[in-house]
Structure formats: C-alpha cells, structure tokens
C-alpha cells in the first residue's frame, strides 16, 4: 500500500529526515513512536506532500507520488488528521463533515445542485459522526464546541474523506482518559482494510492498536517491530529513558 524508500529531507545543513524507509501492507496499522523533535510530523508532511523530500521516493498503491501535489495524493486516497486542530472555523460540525466528504468525493464543481446536502453525503456525515461520537453535536458551530469535540471532529474530517491510507498525527493529544478509551474503540471498529499510520504519545493506546511499530529518533528509523518486541527493546527504552548505564 505504502512504500517509502530512503527518504531524506534537509533544511539547509539540518537533516530532519535521514534515509527513512518503511513499508505498509494493505490494512496494516502502524504506530510511529519517538521523542519530541524526532521527525514524526515531518515524515507526515513528506508523505502528504506539504513538504517535498530532498531525495528518496514515496510509492502509494503502486504509484510514485514523491513529487505529486497535496491534492493529487488526497485524490489517490490519502487522508490525514493534524496534531493541531485544523477545522473549518465558523461553520457547524455538519458543514465541516459535509465539506470533507464532498470535497474528497470530487463533487465540487456543480453550479446548480448541492452534493453537500444530498442523501449520499448526509449518510456519510451521519456515519462518521456516529463513529467519532459527535451525533448529538452535528448542528453546533465548531467555535462553540469544547476541545474534546473539536479533536473528535479533526479525526472525523479525515474519516469522512473515506481514505485508503489514513495518517493520524497524535489524535488523542490533550484529551482525557475517557476519550483515549473511546478512540481505542474507534480504531478497533474501523474496517480492517484501511491502512493507518498513527503518531501516538500514549504508549498503552499505541501498543494496543498497532500491528507494528516504527520508532524514530533524530530523523532516523531506529527500530521497527511488533508491539511486543518494541516493549522489550532496550534501544527504545534508552531513547525514552536515557542510557541508565551512564547515568
């Protein structure tokens, strides 16, 4: 589904991504771990197209998208949710989901009828709202929603795009334990053929939803393996806790 080979990104003399390679099978759920500044969001920006790599290649579903623009990648089925909420402010939850679902379906050009209000899109809106727990808030303006709801909507916008590959950047950042549980359930309830790459800071959640784990540090892949192997890995412990032998 996704094939990343020797991806590098330099900002002047600073290498923020060094030779990153990873491969995701269809339906695989990969969690990306790593301390702050490890290059996790940079990797997402490279995959989604907001940054262009210095070298290396990205293959999505057999197509080389290394230099493809953001919207083309999205049309090939890539959707992302952001670390910081990136919503349509000033509109309601329903309008937000409607924009996401309709835009991703490509029905944006008609000058007469409104696909956003059509039955097909309303079905997607209702379904996604149910998935992310916003069914009761559909007609609320986003600006009056509490932070937790806005976080749910952030993930909802990506889901409403009906993606094949979903990139989620810290979907549970800043929310309480109840919502982390709810998110755990949400991930498990999603169709098994949806490929996911998730940046997560909550270890329990990460280990719980992952099929496999990639650990980044200083822009490099330092570990890749099953959740169990990651838990046991001395290297990973050292990254997070420091080298105890030298302490």
């Amino acid at each position: 589904m996704l094939e990343v080979r020797n991806l590098c990104k330099n900002f002047g003399g600073l290498a923020v991504a060094k030779n990153i390679s990873l491969s995701l099978k269809k339906g695989e759920r990969r969690v990306v771990l790593g301390p702050n500044g490890a290059g996790k969001t940079t990797l997402f920006n490279l995959l989604a197209g907001t940054l262009t790599p210095t070298s290396g290649s990205i293959i999505l579903g057999g197509r080389n998208i290394t230099r493809a623009p953001v919207e083309k990648r999205a049309r090939l089925g890539l959707a992302r949710s952001y670390q910081k909420n990136n919503l349509f402010e000033g509109l309601t939850v329903r309008e937000n989901l409607g924009l996401a679902a309709t835009t991703a379906s490509g029905r944006t050009a008609s000058l007469r009828c409104c696909a956003h209000d059509g039955a097909e899109m309303q079905d997607i809106i209702a379904e996604v709202a149910e998935q992310v727990g916003l069914s009761d808030s559909l007609d609320k303006p986003v600006s009056s929603c509490p932070y937790g709801n806005r976080r749910q909507l952030e993930v909802g916008l990506a889901l409403a795009a009906r993606p094949k590959l979903l990139l989620m950047d810290e979907p549970t950042s800043g929310v309480g334990p109840n919502m982390i549980d709810a998110f755990d359930k949400l991930i498990h309830a999603l169709p098994r053929d949806l490929t996911m790459l998730i940046i997560e800071h909550d270890f329990d959640l990460g280990f719980n939803v992952a099929d496999s784990i990639t650990v980044l540090n200083y822009g490099e892949v330092v570990f890749e393996g099953s959740p169990e192997a990651t838990r046991q890995s001395r290297e990973v412990k050292e990254i997070y806790l420091g080298d105890w032998n030298h302490a």
Partner: peptide, 29 residues
C-alpha cells in the same frame, strides 16, 4: 445566490474557511 448554494459555492466557502484543509482533502484550490 444559485451558485453559492451549489456544490461549487459550498466549496468556495470551504476555501475561505480553511484553504489548506480543502487542498488536503483533494481540491485543486
């Protein structure tokens, strides 16, 4: 008014609200 009520117009409002997100959803802004 007709155009603004259509898919085209809604999409235009979406660009106004958040251009980057519309692009990330696949729109050629």
């Amino acid at each position: 008014a007709t155009v603004l009520r259509s898919s085209f117009g809604r999409t235009l409002s979406g660009i106004h609200a958040n251009e980057d997100r519309m692009q990330a959803l696949g729109l050629s802004v």
